[in-house]
Amino acid sequence: MASVVVSFELNGRPAEVLARPMTTLQSVLRNQLGFTATKEGCRQGGCGSCTVLVDGEPMPSCLLPIEDVAGRRVTTLEGITPIDGLSPVQQAFLDGNGFQCGYCTPGMEMLATALLERNPSPGRDEIVEALGGNICRCTGYQPIVDAIEAAAGAASTGER
């Protein structure tokens, strides 16, 4: 059970970890590197709370062996939070209360960030479809969809 060394890019900086074979990216982020914005809701790919970006694509970090991200670009919520203030998506979630308990929020924001990257002005239907894999048990989703709409609107009108 020899451990393996895996190098990848994490939030724009080089990262190198020593891990047991097939340790999940989620576990490496949370337990080894202390990047705990990435949550653990189900570890089955079913809830979206551990969503990160790998080479810009949203993926459930609980289903990715760390070996599979070797040499790739990983982005977590910590990586999209500016040194000062908040990203447009984060600001919109804060302003619109797109959260209650806050547990699904990092995954929602990563998904929203990826969506707006692909499509800066998605329709409400597109937002809802994109969020299909991210579960929230508190809000009933409307404030979350509203926040993403607001973030898209703010970006298109050049605010923030």
Binding site: R30, N31, G34, T36, A37, T38, K39, E40, T76, L77, E78, T81, L86, Q90, Q91, F93, L94, N97, F99, G102, Y103, T105, P106, E109
Partner: peptide, 16 residues
């Protein structure tokens, strides 16, 4: 709110 949207809120299992 800021803790929630930045992921800095510490939930129980976030401690190691």
């Amino acid at each position: 709110g800021v803790g929630h949207v930045t992921g800095r809120t510490r939930f129980a299992a976030d401690h190691t």
